[in-house]
Simulated assay, not measured.
Amino acid sequence: MKVAGRRRASTRHATGHTAYAARFVHRTRCALVALTTFGAASLACSAQTDELTGTLRKIHDDGVVVLGVREASIPFSYFDGKGTVGYSQTIALQIVEEIKKTLGMPQLKVHEITVTSSNRTPMLLNNQIDLECGSTTHTVERENLAAFSNSFFQYAVRMIARKNAGITDFQDLAGKAVVTTAGTSDERLLRRLNTDKLLNMRITSARDHSEAFNTLKDGRAVAFVMDEPIVYGFKSTDPRPDDFVVTGTPLGYEVYACMFRKGDEPFRTLVNGVIARGQTSGEAERLYRQWFTQPIPPHGINLNFPLSEQNRALFAHPNDRALD
């Protein structure tokens, strides 16, 4: 898998000769079938291709599916030194397998592009990525720009602070420097809290989660406000995890979902089918245990984050509702 920056080199995928080759292979496959069935199958193959629309048509014609992935959203989507891994990355790859079956393209190529909280939606709208399953919150406001799958994780918004800082709840942040990640729903919640409660916090919005946590570690902020599983991930993977505490009355509860382009019902049906089958079959709970209650790569750290009753209920009743 090609990578951007140190590992993903380009956002221009499968254009020109690659797209032509994909279409040529498909036409050749149809033609070979026709030779053995006197043309009937050839007509069916052409008709099936003509019926494709939206994202599935784009993927078919380009011969590649482009995934937006995160670099440090542990344990959802992150780079482990070899490639992208994680709980939601696994779900994304399950969706890719379903796309391959639906299109009859077992050799379909997969390309990854690293996205951030700030650029993931523009990259989707500009057709630079086809699907993003990382740690993106499904909100009602975001439905104006993008479509969201069935939720695959429910969580609380809290904060991480140094244990010796004396921070236990959000009122303790009054007048202090606080960091969050730019372009997230958490940033919106934190700024609203600051205004509503007149806390006079000095809020910094970091480019990504890693930069935000480093701001806390360097002492430039007393707390990092973010999704609870994300901050648990940073705490668990830090060389000195006992120096930090995850704390605070939840600012709210939200859900993660995969994001794709609006107005694409065939693609929505495919994606939701994969997620719902995993949740009702027990596969989602097994996947949860793998990434949240067992050692994970690259250092074998265990987040020790048991399945919540909210997530158990979500798995029993798959849905694509925002919680805000």
Rank of each mutant, 00 (worst) to 15 (best):
M1E: 09
M1P: 13
V3R: 15
V3A: 12
G5P: 14
A14T: 06
A19K: 09
R27N: 02
T28L: 13
A31F: 04
T37H: 12
G39N: 05
A40E: 06
S42N: 09
S42P: 00
S42G: 09
A44G: 10
A47H: 06
Q48G: 10
T49W: 07
D50W: 06
L52K: 11
T53V: 12
R57W: 00
H60P: 13
H60Y: 11
D62S: 14
G63A: 09
G63S: 11
L67V: 05
R70P: 00
P75L: 09
T84P: 01
T84Q: 04
G86W: 00
Y87D: 01
T90Q: 12
L93W: 05
V96P: 01
V96W: 04
I99Q: 01
L108E: 08
V110L: 13
V110F: 05
H111R: 12
H111D: 11
V115G: 00
V115W: 00
S117R: 02
M123W: 15
N126C: 15
I129H: 00
L131H: 00
C133H: 12
S135L: 09
T137H: 07
T139L: 10
E143W: 08
N144K: 15
L145P: 00
A146C: 13
F152V: 06
F152P: 00
Y155E: 11
V157M: 10
R158K: 15
M159P: 05
I160Y: 02
A161G: 07
D169L: 07
F170W: 05
F170H: 06
F170E: 01
Q171S: 14
Q171H: 12
D172G: 11
L173G: 01
L173A: 04
L173R: 03
G175Y: 12
A177I: 03
T181F: 03
A182P: 01
S185M: 10
L189K: 13
R192W: 11
N194H: 13
D196A: 15
R202P: 09
R202G: 08
S210Q: 12
S210D: 09
E211G: 10
E211C: 04
A212N: 03
K217V: 12
G219S: 14
A221Q: 06
A221Y: 01
F224C: 12
V225M: 03
D227L: 01
D227E: 07
E228S: 07
Y232M: 14
T237W: 06
D238P: 05
D238E: 08
P239F: 05
R240K: 15
D243G: 07
V245D: 02
V245Y: 08
V246Q: 13
G248F: 05
G252F: 07
E254G: 03
E254T: 08
A257I: 01
C258P: 04
M259D: 11
M259T: 15
K262G: 08
K262P: 02
E265Y: 06
N272P: 15
V274S: 01
V274M: 09
I275F: 14
R277W: 05
T280I: 10
S281N: 15
E283G: 03
A284P: 00
R289T: 08
R289A: 08
R289H: 13
F292V: 13
F292G: 03
P297L: 13
P297F: 10
P298Q: 14
P306A: 07
L307P: 03
L307D: 04
E309I: 08
Q310S: 15
R312I: 03
P318G: 11
R321Y: 11
